[in-house]
Amino acid sequence: MPGLIAKQPNGLYCRISTVVEAPTHHDMTKEELEYYLINTRSLDINLVTLDDWLAFYEVDFSEAIKQLGSACSTFEETREWLVEVGYQHADVFMKKIAYRWDEWEEEE
């Protein structure tokens, strides 16, 4: 699974793709996350519980969002998503990674 699972500041879960540099799933409850992981064959509940899986694979949200970039979403879309999920430092964080969008826009 080329992506990171993290708990959003609002207590729900997200998956941030390391390929498209954007959240592909967000605001998932624990049950929805389990369903997603089972369907993507990332979790076999016969071998491990979701809590055990999360203890091993879950990434801190502040680390997961470092994967965000311009490959699939605009600067504003990314910022809005961070605000929607309750990330308190969205504006400061986006200023730090703004260069990712500037470089992309220059290439076009």
Rank of each mutant, 00 (worst) to 15 (best):
K30Y: 04
G69W: 08
W101C: 06
I38W: 04
A55H: 05
R79V: 14
E106N: 07
F61Y: 12
V19I: 15
Q88W: 01
L12Q: 08
Y36N: 04
V19G: 01
K96G: 12
G3V: 06
E106M: 10
K95T: 10
I16V: 15
Y57L: 08
M28H: 01
E32H: 02
D44R: 01
F93C: 08
S17P: 09
D60L: 11
E80A: 14
W104L: 11
T49A: 10
W81H: 13
S17C: 15
G69D: 11
H26T: 15
V48P: 00
R79I: 13
M1T: 09
H25I: 04
E106V: 12
Q8V: 04
V48R: 00
M94N: 04
E63Q: 11
L82G: 02
S17Y: 10
A22E: 09
F56G: 00
V48F: 03
P23Y: 06
D52I: 14
V48H: 00
S42A: 07
V20M: 10
V83K: 05
W101T: 03
L37Q: 00
P23F: 14
A71R: 03
V19S: 08
L33T: 01
V92M: 09
E21N: 15
E108F: 10
A55R: 06
I38K: 09
M28P: 00
L33Y: 05
E106A: 15
R15S: 07
E80Y: 06
V20F: 13
Y99F: 15
L50W: 09
T24C: 11
V59F: 03
Y87I: 06
S73P: 00
S62W: 07
W104Q: 12
A6C: 15
E34S: 08
E103M: 12
